[in-house]
Amino acid sequence: MTEHPVIGYAVWAVLFGGIFAWEGISLVRIGDSFPTLSEALDGVMRYSAGRWTLFALWLWFGWHTFVRGWQFMLR
Rank of each mutant, 00 (worst) to 15 (best):
T2F: 06
E3T: 02
H4F: 06
H4A: 11
H4G: 02
P5Q: 14
V6C: 02
I7A: 13
I7H: 12
I7Y: 13
G8S: 15
A10M: 11
W12F: 06
W12R: 10
A13R: 14
V14K: 03
F16M: 15
G18R: 04
G18K: 04
I19H: 00
I19R: 01
F20V: 12
F20P: 00
A21I: 14
A21R: 11
W22D: 04
E23P: 04
E23T: 02
E23W: 03
G24S: 15
G24E: 06
I25W: 14
S26E: 03
S26V: 00
L27W: 04
V28G: 08
R29C: 02
R29A: 02
I30P: 03
G31Q: 11
D32C: 05
F34T: 01
P35C: 07
P35A: 07
P35L: 06
P35I: 05
T36A: 06
T36V: 02
L37H: 07
L37M: 14
L37G: 09
S38H: 14
E39H: 05
E39P: 01
E39C: 01
E39Y: 01
A40L: 15
D42G: 11
D42C: 06
D42V: 04
G43A: 12
V44R: 00
M45T: 14
R46K: 14
R46T: 08
Y47K: 14
Y47Q: 13
S48W: 14
A49M: 05
G50H: 10
G50I: 03
T53F: 11
T53R: 09
L54V: 14
F55M: 13
F55V: 08
A56K: 00
L57E: 12
L57C: 15
W58Y: 12
W58E: 06
W58M: 08
L59S: 10
L59E: 09
L59R: 09
W60L: 05
G62R: 02
W63R: 09
W63L: 13
H64I: 02
H64E: 09
T65A: 11
F66K: 04
V67H: 03
R68D: 05
R68W: 04
R68I: 02
G69E: 07
G69L: 03
W70Y: 03
Q71G: 08
Q71R: 13
Q71W: 04
Q71A: 11
M73A: 13
L74P: 00
L74A: 10
R75A: 07
